[in-house]
Design a binder for these strands. Structure first.
Lengths: 115, 115
DNA sequence: TGACTATATCTGTATTGGCGTATATAGTCG
DNA sequence: CGACTATATACGCCAATACAGATATAGTCA
């Protein structure tokens, strides 16, 4: 079960909120998609994902070379609702909209074979 | 209008979450009530309240010697819902329950005259 | 095996942010 | 005015954390 402090720690950084906002909408995305969408160096994205993976906010699945992250399915209901509201609150912001746009227009997105 | 970063910054510290959780339930409380409930030194509580006041998460009313804080009434709907869900998520935790208990049992609570 | 791709981790640095303590401000009341 | 109460702020210190850049790991495919 996730720790409350860890959950709010995930929300305390804008980069992490950008990652979460994408994942709330898209159910699962791989690291290279997230890097491309946020237009940030891969180690930076990877470190933030690691923080959230280690605290149980995100879960991970490997498929070949790609590693897919998603919102952890065992979060308590209130935590889901907060993520959802955060997504709504951020949807109006230019940065978050640009992230969505870049993701949508990303060339050669990896194809899930056996989601 | 509140800044999204500032809003999540308010949630990023446990002391601030304890303050917010009390205020979500009680509509307004003065600094000495909050100090007593959290059992923390006054400057520490005051500094955390100042952070949230300056970013527009809390608003303030003076009544004589006492200063009453409350959740700001102009937060966007999604922010309210997050505060509400945070309150529910934390309600199960011992620290937050103890805060409520101390507040309820506090002797000589100041009396609002003209709320 | 070796080249290549995707992702993770390490290392050193700079910044942020919380803390305790001391002190300042502001209002009340004699 | 001076004593008192409630609250706010300033200061110096320390720990946490984000960062860039370099490097390691792990899987794939020739």
């Amino acid at each position: 079960m996730i720790n409350t402090n860890d959950f709010f720690d995930a929300l305390s950084d804008e980069t992490r909120r950008r990652l979460l906002a994408l994942l709330v909408g898209d159910d699962e995305l791989c690291v290279c998609e997230l890097c491309y969408a946020l237009d940030l160096p891969q180690p930076k994205v990877s470190r933030h994902l690691a923080v959230m993976r280690e605290s149980g906010v995100l879960s991970v699945r490997r498929e070949g070379l790609w590693i897919y992250y998603r919102i952890h399915s065992l979060l308590p209901a209130w935590a889901y609702r907060i993520l959802d509201q955060m997504g709504q609150g951020c949807a109006a912001l230019a940065i978050f909209q640009a992230d969505r746009k870049r993701l949508k227009e990303m060339p050669n997105r990896p194809v899930r074979c056996c989601a």
